[in-house]
Write a protein that binds this DNA or RNA. Structure first.
Lengths: 149, 149
DNA sequence: TAATTCGTAACATATATTGTTACATGAAAA
DNA sequence: TTTTCATGTAACAATATATGTTACGAATTA
């Protein structure tokens, strides 16, 4: 299947927004993400509903943050996107009648659950401010050794 | 999209095989898994190539283990299946030209990588013998309190 | 020789993600 | 007030992947 890239895409968009002090239109963001303005609106809709960003119409409109960057975690964003399915692998049946299958699903399910919990803990700790700082550090590091880039 | 259920399915099949001392045909396994014999063969092919199971043709043929159950880990099986894509979420582009996107992908990618490592470590520790023991314990526990099942 | 069983290619079906078009709604500028 | 700009959203198309199904060949045993 195609992988769900909304989390990466929306973070990419938000980081571009963080680099600017004015609202960015869906068209501008679409160019950054190499996609379509409708896709941008569709993806950002969840963040708007969650109070992470705000959208404005008409002249001078577009997307901007509704909260400080250090008050927005990756977990907030993951949730605002509707908690997309994390794992591509999983059981064929949720409620199997076969006891053997139930036992197998329990073992696999617990392992996946723990891995997911670990990932979510990490998402909770990381804010957009951290992400922006990471980016600026990477840019500085690259400028210091332009030949290795 | 549909989730990949081959790992759960093949473990389900292997546990049924573990409960029997004769080879099981693809058709028998297909009935257990509520699917088709061709699907079973397709899935088991990787395990056969990895030396986990062996297949025999003709009368009395079918699938059986090629190694002791305590010498087969979930990791072995996951690998034999071709290491299916683990996460449904991921970056849109593998080699982005945009520095912002690269930075975002690095953060997400590292978190996913660590979660995957944790899961694989767990798969490495768990053998089919463990799985069979889990199942037998579950059956015993259920028999001890039939009213709560 | 006949029955059985795996091996595999080819095609069909179902579902999820992403892209695209079209049009309505709201807001600011002329 | 009219025009322009921008979001909101429905509807449909394109693409990708997993799984199901049919068909037939190859190998093994009775």
């Amino acid at each position: 299947m195609k992988r769900n890239s909304r989390l990466s895409a929306v973070l990419h968009a938000l980081m571009h927004m963080a680099e600017r002090d004015r609202p960015m239109t869906s068209d501008e963001l679409a160019h950054c993400l190499d996609t379509n303005a409708v896709v941008v609106r569709r993806t950002m809709a969840g963040l708007r509903d969650a109070g992470i960003v705000a959208s404005g119409r008409g002249h001078g409109g577009g997307w901007q943050f509704a909260r400080p960057l250090d008050d927005i975690s990756l977990f907030d964003i993951y949730n605002a996107l509707g908690e997309p399915i994390l794992f591509q692998i999983g059981p064929a049946t949720e409620m199997p009648g076969c006891a053997v299958e139930r036992s197998v699903n329990a073992v696999i399910g617990e392992a996946l659950k723990d891995a997911e919990a670990m990932l979510m803990a990490r998402f909770r700790q990381k804010t957009l401010a951290d992400l922006a700082a990471d980016f600026h550090l990477a840019v500085l590091a690259k400028a210091a050794r332009p030949d290795t880039g």
